[in-house]
Design a protein around this nucleic acid. Sequence first.
DNA 1: CCCAAAGGTTAACGAGCGCTAACGACTCTG
DNA 2: CAGAGTCGTTAGCGCTCGTTAACCTTTGGG
Lengths: 195, 195
Amino acid sequence: MTSRVDAPTRREQILGEAARLFAERGFHGVGVDEIGAAVGISGPGLYRHFPGKDAMLAELLVGISERLLRGGRRRVEEAAGSAEQLLDSLLEGHIDFALDDRALITLQDRELDRLRDSDRKLVRQFQRQYVELWVGAVRAVYPALAEPSARASVHAVFGLLNSTPHLGRPGSLPGREAMAALLHRLARGAFSAAR
Amino acid sequence: MTSRVDAPTRREQILGEAARLFAERGFHGVGVDEIGAAVGISGPGLYRHFPGKDAMLAELLVGISERLLRGGRRRVEEAAGSAEQLLDSLLEGHIDFALDDRALITLQDRELDRLRDSDRKLVRQFQRQYVELWVGAVRAVYPALAEPSARASVHAVFGLLNSTPHLGRPGSLPGREAMAALLHRLARGAFSAAR
DNA sequence: CCCAAAGGTTAACGAGCGCTAACGACTCTG
DNA sequence: CAGAGTCGTTAGCGCTCGTTAACCTTTGGG
């Protein structure tokens, strides 16, 4: 039983560096030797922890989409109150994720096609359920909004929130908390204009 | 002098298919043989038209970013009227681009790092000027908005508009005109909430 | 009519990549 | 202290990929 506050295990360390490298240079653009070097071991030593390079990507993508969905569902259950509160809670969770796990956000919509069919289907299924959860929350706040428009709006707002990775040098932008608040307002503004 | 309404030249044909393939499977995920096959010639025949695979990507990315900037500047000149009109015009242009050239949009922020240093610098320069042009337009409409917030908002709205490529099966979404109108409203709503 | 330019073809090379094989050191545990 | 399990190492295989070389066919102009 591994404690949750321990230093990251070698496996987790590898996954973290792999995520960063994949996001920076693309799945095909990174060699196993580089991933190994990033954690201080070299090349084939990775195969003591993963059956192959594909498996690392798969574990990353399945992990993200599953975490997002679980977090969303938890918020749906906890938000017994108003529909507004649920939408704000979902926004808060997604924004935290976008700001703190930029590499994973990038991978999620960039390298999905490199997965084996079964893994890709699984990730797509998680993503779809997550989107539908949002669609429900948005329509609870804006009941006049038709479902196709709501779905398209949710996709678009995800694009807005996930745009964080593509940002320039840090100087010309707000800090982390200001950025979170700004993204929240932008997203709410977009939804409220969906009509 | 090539007429603008002629059938696409072989070069243009290659660029089009390369854009589609790069967007689908990533730059490193597509082989020159596939690009050749997509236009009916095979593999090394491409080298009669381009010095290498990198050159195709470079021409695509430089072309897009240059076109976007030129279109934006044209709209700035033409919009002698109100600031609102300019912002709407910029939105219209970018939305047309996002809806009609999805592959290029995808490439623009996904494969930029695969370029030679000089080409990447050029593309980044075009992109930066395009963003600054938008920042000016947004701040003309919302003068109270500080520049860093305006810049972050512009990036975020680009993410919103460019989210079109990541959409699901066509059935569950609005048609092209409805989608354009929806994106326009969402973007305006986001800006108006930036504060 | 010739010949040069344009635009293809196939064969093959060299580099890089994912992965396996074979081996070694360290650390527990009975 | 033996032996197994864990976690590394290096060498190298086989394949793919971008690119080059050498050659062929068509076409338009002097």
